[in-house]
Amino acid sequence: MFAYVAKRIVAMPFLLLGVITVAFLLTHFTAADPLTSIIGERQMNNPDVVEAARQRWGLDRSLPEQYLVYLGNLVTGDFGTSFRTRQPVAQDLIVRLPATLELVISAMILGTVFGITLGVFAARSRGGVIDNLARLFALVGASAPVFWSGLLVLFVFSVQLGWLPGPGRIDARAVAPPFVTGFFTIDSLLAGDWAGFRSALLHLLLPASVLGWTVTGIVSRMVRASMLDVLSQEYILAARAKGASPVRVLLHHALRNAMLPTLTIIGFSFAYLITGAVLTETIFAWPGIGSYAVSAARGLDHPAIVGVTIVGGAAFLVSNLLTDIAYAVVDPRVKLGAKVGA
């Protein structure tokens, strides 16, 4: 397995280079000149201002030259400067990636725990009330658009009931904790700021729940289907015949085997949510990588677009690798890197 993992890690930079090249080229074939986002309308007819901006942002160079300069800078960790925020893209990503990770990891934990639980209970009481309710909950979670469910929970829990705070990562009146991990919940704890921790945690609940609901929907349906398949296997019958308790049969014999396809879904969901939490981030004013990507695309912010693409590509590569490793851990029959028939 070690050799397989090492091989995959070595291949990653080459795969990322392909991602970077495609992203770089695509951003330069858009319908509009990025200068229209850099310069205000009033000055677009001013040749002095236009020329100064072209020089400043390196847009006076040929495309191959821009590409080589970009790759050269990338090697030193320089992702360029955002046309929109005017800050180094690397700095923007360092600030925003933890925000998204904090949201996505929380959503994944909530979504996975609830999803597996629902799936198991639904499979156990197939056709019963619990099964139908669980399927309904999963269906709504998987199909309700986040822009609707997000606004709805904000209106109910924040505006009407006043139980939970509104948008943002922390109370607007509070000062963000000093940056250590970028996770406000962890950083506020590290700083000994309990009020900050409480605020960060409460602010996290609604967006993580909304995002997690979609994961719950997908995971519970997958777990239910896998469990139903596994529960009909003969070895389950054998386990029962040997006197294993229902809980042991369900969790040890059935769930463990039903988890393999679920792991794939969880892995892909995680990578997808890294860049796909756009609507949640927008509705909850969550300054993460998703909202950054949308603003970058709308503002023709080429360096930011490529930067986000690199992060998204890396997230997919890493999550795929971790999923494969998890396969091997969960099911000893899976031998990573083994040749078929060997």
Binding site: S158, V159, P165, G166, A172, I283
Partner: peptide
């Protein structure tokens, strides 16, 4: 809408 919700809830 978000701004109005913040105002109503006292967040803004």
């Amino acid at each position: 809408v978000s701004q109005a919700q913040m105002l109503q809830s006292g967040a803004a």
